Measured scan of single mutants.
Amino acid sequence: SQQIATAKDKYEWLVSRIVKNHNENWLSVSRKMQASPEYQDYVYLEGTQKAKKLFLQHIHRLK
């Protein structure tokens, strides 16, 4: 749906803004993002596993 696509774009923007180093780990980054509406919306719509998967894809691109 359009809502999910929009939430994903915003979440990816948030991840790219916060995660600048491929050594970052999911636990510390997800804690930093918990207060962000972009993170909350995406997790609400798609779940934590998908959020983690996108985070890991971003990390992989930074290597």
Rank of each mutant, 00 (worst) to 15 (best):
A51C: 01
Q3R: 10
Y39F: 11
Y39N: 00
D9H: 13
S30C: 10
Y11T: 04
S36E: 15
S28P: 04
Q34W: 08
V15S: 00
M33L: 12
K50M: 13
K52S: 01
K50Y: 05
D41C: 08
A7Y: 04
L54N: 08
I18D: 05
T6K: 10
K10T: 05
Y11E: 00
F55K: 03
R61P: 02
K53D: 14
N21V: 04
K32W: 03
P37G: 06
I18A: 02
K52M: 06
S16T: 11
K8V: 04
K8T: 10
Y39M: 04
L54F: 07
Y44L: 15
N25H: 08
Y44T: 15
H22F: 12
L56V: 08
T48W: 06
Q34R: 12
W26L: 03
Y39S: 03
R61Q: 11
K52W: 03
E38M: 06
E46G: 03
S1P: 09
L27D: 13
I4V: 10
A35S: 14
L27F: 11
W26D: 04
K63W: 09
Q49L: 10
W26F: 09
H58K: 03
N25R: 07
E46W: 01
A7F: 00
L14A: 05
P37W: 05
E46M: 07
L27Q: 15
L62S: 02
T48K: 14
Y39Q: 00
E46H: 11
Y42N: 06
A7N: 00
H22E: 13
S1L: 09
Q34G: 07
Q2P: 07
D41I: 05
M33K: 02
G47M: 01
A51R: 01
S36V: 09
L45V: 06
Q2A: 08
E46F: 08
D9Q: 15
K50S: 12
R61M: 09
K20A: 08
V29Y: 03
V19N: 01
K20N: 07
Q34V: 09
K20P: 04
K32G: 02
H58Y: 10
T6M: 12
S30Y: 08
Q49N: 09
H22G: 13
P37L: 06
S16A: 13
Q3F: 11
N23K: 13
S28M: 09
Y42G: 01
V29A: 15
Y42P: 00
Y11R: 02
W13E: 15
Y11V: 01
K50D: 01
K50C: 08
S30G: 03
V43H: 00
H60W: 07
N23M: 11
S16H: 12
Q2D: 08
Q57P: 01
V43K: 02
H22L: 09
L27I: 12
D41R: 13
H58C: 05
H58N: 03
Q3S: 11
E12K: 10
Q57F: 02
K20D: 09
M33T: 02
A5M: 12
W26M: 02
Y39G: 02
K52R: 11
A7D: 05
H22T: 14
I4F: 06
S36Q: 14
Y39I: 03
S36P: 06
S36M: 15
I4C: 05
L62C: 00
A35N: 15
Y42L: 03
G47V: 01
G47A: 00
D9Y: 12
A5T: 12
N21L: 05
L54W: 03
V19A: 07
H58R: 03
E38K: 04
K52C: 03
Y11P: 01
W13K: 15
E46K: 05
E38N: 04
Q2C: 09
F55M: 03
E12H: 04
M33R: 02
V29H: 00
L14R: 02
Y42F: 12
V43Y: 04
Y11Q: 02
K52F: 07
K32E: 06
W13L: 15
Q57Y: 07
F55R: 02
K52E: 13
Q2Y: 08
Q3A: 11
K20L: 11
F55H: 02
K63F: 04
Y42W: 02
E38R: 01
K20M: 06
N23C: 11
I4E: 02
I18M: 12
Q3T: 11
S30E: 12
S28H: 13
V15L: 15
Q3N: 11
Q49S: 11
Q49D: 14
H58E: 05
L54D: 06
V43D: 00
V19T: 06
K63V: 05
H58A: 06
H60S: 15
Y42E: 00
R17M: 11
Q57C: 05
Y42C: 00
N21Y: 03
Q40K: 13
R17Q: 15
L45E: 07
P37K: 15
K8C: 05
A51H: 00
E46Q: 12
S28A: 13
D9N: 11
K63N: 12
Q40D: 02
G47I: 01
A7R: 03
E38C: 07
S36H: 15
R61N: 14
P37N: 05
A35V: 08
L14N: 00
I4A: 07
Y11F: 11
Q3V: 10
L45A: 07
V19F: 02
Q2M: 13
Y44E: 15
R31A: 12
V29S: 05
K32L: 08
F55Y: 09
V15N: 00
V43L: 06
S16Q: 14
V43I: 10
Y44C: 14
K8D: 03
K52Y: 09
S30M: 14
K63G: 06
V15M: 14
I18P: 01
I4P: 06
N25Y: 00
W13I: 14
E38P: 01
L14E: 04
E24W: 05
V43G: 00
Y39C: 04
Q40P: 00
E46S: 04
S1Y: 06
S16R: 14
K32A: 09
I59G: 01
K50Q: 12
Q2F: 08
E12L: 14
Q57G: 09
A51I: 00
K53E: 15
K32F: 05
E12Q: 10
Q57R: 09
Q2S: 10
Y42A: 03
V43W: 01
V15T: 02
M33V: 05
A7I: 09
K8R: 14
D9P: 02
H60I: 07
Q57S: 10
M33A: 00
Q57A: 13
L45S: 07
A51G: 01
N25W: 03
V29D: 01
L62W: 03
R17W: 03
A7M: 02
K8A: 07
I4T: 10
Q57K: 15
N21Q: 08
A7H: 07
K50N: 10
V43A: 06
Q3K: 10
A51Y: 00
D41H: 13
P37V: 10
K20Y: 01
T48F: 06
T6V: 14
S36R: 13
V19E: 02
I59M: 12
E46T: 03
Y42S: 01
S16M: 10
K53M: 14
H58M: 08
A51Q: 00
K63L: 06
K10V: 03
W26Y: 00
V15A: 00
G47T: 01
N25F: 00
A35T: 13
E46D: 01
Q2G: 09
R31N: 10
A35Y: 11
K63S: 10
D41L: 08
N25P: 07
V29M: 08
K32I: 09
G47H: 10
H60R: 09
R31F: 05
L27G: 14
L27K: 13
L56C: 00
K20F: 04
S1V: 10
K20S: 08
Q57T: 08
K8E: 06
L45Y: 11
A35D: 14
Y39A: 04
L56Y: 11
A5Q: 14
K53I: 11
E38F: 12
K63E: 08
I4K: 10
I18T: 14
H58L: 06
L62H: 00
K8Q: 10
R31E: 12
I4R: 07
R17T: 12
S36L: 15
T48E: 15
V19S: 03
L62K: 03
D9I: 13
E38L: 09
H22A: 14
Q57E: 15
S28V: 10
Y39V: 01
K20Q: 12
A5H: 07
I18R: 04
E46Y: 10
S1K: 12
Y42D: 01
V19K: 04
L45P: 03
V19C: 11
H60P: 00
L54K: 01
V19G: 00
V19W: 03
R61H: 12
N25C: 11
Y39K: 02
S30F: 07
E12W: 03
Q2R: 08
T6W: 07
H58I: 09
H58F: 11
A35H: 14
L45K: 07
Q2I: 09
V15R: 02
Y42T: 01
N25V: 04
R61Y: 07
P37Y: 03
F55P: 06
